[in-house]
Design a protein around this nucleic acid. Sequence first.
DNA 1: CTGAAAGCGCTAACAC
DNA 2: GTGTTAGCGCTTTCAG
Lengths: 351, 351
Amino acid sequence: MSPAGGGSGAAGRPKRPTMVDVAREAGVALRTVSRVVNDDPTVGPEYVAKVKAAIAALNFRPDERARQLRTGVTGTIGAAVRRIAEINPALAAIEQTARASGLTLLASSTDFDEARERDILLSMCRQRLDGIIVEPIGENHGYLEAELADGMPVVAMDRPMSGISVDCVMSDNAAGIGMAFHHLHQHGHRRVAYIGDSERVYSGRERAAAFRAALLAHGLPVDGLVHPGEITAERVGAALESVLSGPDPATALITGNTDTTLAVLRRLGPAAASRLGIVGFDEVPLADLLQPALTVVAQDTANIGRTAVELLRARIADPSRPAQRVVVPVAMRVRGSGEVAAPAASAVNAG
Amino acid sequence: MSPAGGGSGAAGRPKRPTMVDVAREAGVALRTVSRVVNDDPTVGPEYVAKVKAAIAALNFRPDERARQLRTGVTGTIGAAVRRIAEINPALAAIEQTARASGLTLLASSTDFDEARERDILLSMCRQRLDGIIVEPIGENHGYLEAELADGMPVVAMDRPMSGISVDCVMSDNAAGIGMAFHHLHQHGHRRVAYIGDSERVYSGRERAAAFRAALLAHGLPVDGLVHPGEITAERVGAALESVLSGPDPATALITGNTDTTLAVLRRLGPAAASRLGIVGFDEVPLADLLQPALTVVAQDTANIGRTAVELLRARIADPSRPAQRVVVPVAMRVRGSGEVAAPAASAVNAG
DNA sequence: CTGAAAGCGCTAACAC
DNA sequence: GTGTTAGCGCTTTCAG
């Protein structure tokens, strides 16, 4: 009941009690306290009682850091993602899976900053976390080579890492873009444009390439329809200007990621999708409340997050196993914006 | 260059090198290595060079855990929030402020689960984090009393903690509800209903009370207009049914938090706010893209997050300072849904 | 300015 | 079954 210190008769203790204090209080050996704390069954019941009483009396709580130093494992995995505190179902799945495996999650935001990614990753290594999941952004992760060689388990999510060989789980970008294109094509669109992320980014590269491939596969011209680049209001606005004007404007749009989809919607006004076919790659929050509701190619983010943890656990268990790449299927979510029929007049050069 | 192990001539080393290895390799004392690693300026340049060469040769990276055990501080603060991986500008601000202060952030989701909150908080205590920020959900946090007595710094965010006295930073809930009501009243609404969180939750209690006070202050009847409770589609649907039907239906709505706002929108259809005045408490993602765009009382989340870290740092620096409560102002964001004029016919009992 | 030695709080060999 | 004794890898008194 007293605010600080135990009630064992001695004067108030200035610092937190340790196992030594508990052992002395209980009149047993240090080793016995450790056993009781770790629920070792090979301790006599009377000792257990004495130790537990001493623990309660002193308000003792073991120091996890010391245990970690001694045992070598932290029971913690790190996640370096672009943004915590944003909607990120993969991160939610990572946290849940980790917790279910008895692992603590240490999540940090790289914030799309290569230097910060590096800081975070190296800090996690210095902390000797049991493993790391990373949504890579940097162009070169060679600085992790020594850590990998020393057995640090690392798994990449969404994109492979560059310069080093680690496990990776990612969406089937090519199939997703193909599905989006096919969907719009089915609804009569022959002039479909793509606006998406920069081709400096791996997924941007994959998605733009898949879009070009889709055009070619359908015997359609590629001219001026593919607009990868930075996701800024200006750049996206210019791309829209370009594809929606001229003699043969696009009647439908594929947006390469959530930020692009939102930039397009903000530029054209939310109702744009009632005139234009729009399919977004990746889910958009509140997509169901927009008018029209937004049709998207949704990533199986829960699966990605869960798989990332599973790959990491497998690597922790066997550091020498060969690096794997897992590709997770995507799925269309038909909601309205992708089902706008192409205007009849837009048949290409039908004169 | 070799993938593992140092190039110092000896056979490959099986485990990670330690400071002892570096000292041997460099031919200096352990103490000197420690100094170089910690950038202690009182080391001769030639020694620095030798040590750095050895560090590079062995690929040595210090073990942060051992340092933490020895120094007693972890350089890490914990944040137990309802959800990481959801939009949470306060958490983003916490992370940014922490990073700017050289602190690592360990964020965990309590997931609205009292038992999980307890697990997370006690785990953070066992890890001897430098301090904890918590968005409390539990009804009783007495289990932290011993930790607080032992000097564990804790700051509550959004809601005060129950049963213990800790620093707290939160929004001015009463003023926010007052502003929302006043705004709708200005636009002619005399039948305004409130749907919000359960009064078991502190902020739900404050907001419902403030709403009742607003009605009374305007000389309006309270009958059937106040609907705090669980945020489920059913409960919110029933509340809507109740306030929108009958002889004197509400012409405007105040929704007590983001989840309630979305539940209302999903129930009534996104265009509901063109018929009904709606002001939401707390920001809604993509509020600007809805039609009509959503008027809300926005919390100063960045301020809240930053203040939480500052309160925590102050408490870490001086554990004996008295607990403070900081109330952060809120602000209206006028976007459309709150500016719908009341139908002329709705003057109360004007017969 | 550098070197030897003692610990941070815990776990895990070993004996008893 | 329990008790003694070394460490985990680092920082930090103390002497030189």
